[in-house]
Design a protein around this nucleic acid. Structure first.
Lengths: 230, 230
DNA sequence: TTGATTAAGTCAAACGATTGATTGAAATTA
DNA sequence: TAATTTCAATCAATCGTTTGACTTAATCAA
């Protein structure tokens, strides 16, 4: 009762989700075979149909599993940030934004999240399926909203102002590109992998980039993607 | 003689490449069937083995086809930029960078390139295969190098300085995130697609972002990812 | 010009292998 | 006993590839 649905189910079900997360995280839906998953999960093939109704059901459950896993670790942080932002002067929002994004960067570069999530998230962005809704509601939207809130607070705009939303998007992009474009950047730098020293350098550089963006003057012509800002 | 190899081959071969580009651009390697490709290309199944040795060969040829196609349109532009940069004072490099990136943005948002290339490029970044080398050599590296050159020139650094490379990467990331994360941003803005007005707004915002990043002070501690800058 | 020869390209048909899914019995648990 | 879960075996469908005959076009000797 203290646990949610997933954990009260059979152990086989959890092993399938773990194995599926690993598989779908590194390869595409069609590139993953059900037999490969059940082998990694030490389960029988029919377990997929039994527990999830089929391969498609397993994929959706896996995305939900991933979203739930990441959400639990991030929502507390986001909530805390929103509270802190309300209690401190607006100009401190920049620090909150930087700290959150740099923490996020570490997660996608080094953490467990960085292994599986990016592949799935990008694939769903590029060719959205039902699974994108799950990712958006549980992961992308909360993060995006909180960031836009802080941006608006710091820059004296409305959180619903598209300018704030675009800026939040730009800040996120500035961050995730070092995970998404990792292969390209590493090759440019003649590195085979990020070292901890590399990541420190990146964080320093990114912090300056964040502040440069946040402190840049808003559009004087008040261009608005949907309506005019109030 | 005036044409290169590709065009002198059979028409079937070209139709296969076109169909394969469309297919591999929107779906994953394993998600695309050879029969689907030959159907779109109005060719026989055995044509793939005949012309490319197999599905894998067709994929590699398709990536090369894509790279070649985009390279031709970009290399001239890059070369022109490098020349212009040498003839004008360093502080004008910022304008060159902005113009190039904004032109690039339009291409990936509206142009033919935006349809197929992003999916293939990201996939090869996330799970590199032999095809990544083709993309890197013909597309990513030239663009990255030129941008780093201009950045270094504008900021008074060496083009080989990792700080310049990282800044170039950040600028590219700032741009492509509006294509990669399109689905998320559009949902946040309650839009179904970018309009030309939207894109103008984006370009205005991005130009300010570029300049903010380019004008931001370099790292005072001279942190260097590989060695110390001279 | 003619007819034979050769090579290039295309075609329908079939190959074995693998795919996701299903079956009904067996095992496990309540 | 009854419900849940796991299992080996098998299903039809699709996968990438191969085969050998067929068509087309170019080449060359007569």
């Amino acid at each position: 009762m203290s646990e949610n649905e997933e954990t009260t189910h059979s152990a086989t079900r959890n092993r399938l989700l773990q194995a599926a997360l690993q598989a779908f995280g590194s390869r595409d839906y069609d590139g993953v075979s059900t037999r490969e998953i059940v082998e990694a999960a030490e389960a029988n093939i029919s377990a997929i149909s039994y527990h999830f109704g089929g391969k498609r059901g397993l994929y959706l459950a896996t995305v939900d599993f991933l979203a739930e896993k990441l959400q639990s670790g991030m929502n507390d942080q986001l909530e805390q940030i929103r509270q802190t932002a309300e209690e401190t002067p607006p100009d401190r929002s920049a620090t909150l934004i930087c700290d959150f994004l740099l923490h996020f960067l570490e997660h996608i570069l080094l953490g467990e999240m960085g292994k599986h999530a990016p592949g799935i998230i990008f694939r769903e962005q590029n060719q959205p399926t039902e699974a994108f809704n799950i990712l958006y509601e549980k992961l992308l939207a909360p993060m995006h909203h909180t960031l836009a809130l802080l941006v608006a607070r710091y820059r004296g705009q409305q959180a619903s102002d598209p300018a704030s939303i675009i800026m939040a998007h730009a800040l996120i992009g500035q961050t995730v590109i070092f995970r998404i474009g990792r292969t390209m950047l590493l090759r440019r730098l003649n590195l085979s992998a990020y070292s901890t020293a590399n990541i420190e350098t990146l964080k320093n550089q990114l912090r300056r980039n964040y502040l440069a963006l946040l402190n840049s003057p808003p559009d004087p012509t008040e261009t608005d993607i949907r309506h005019h800002a109030e």
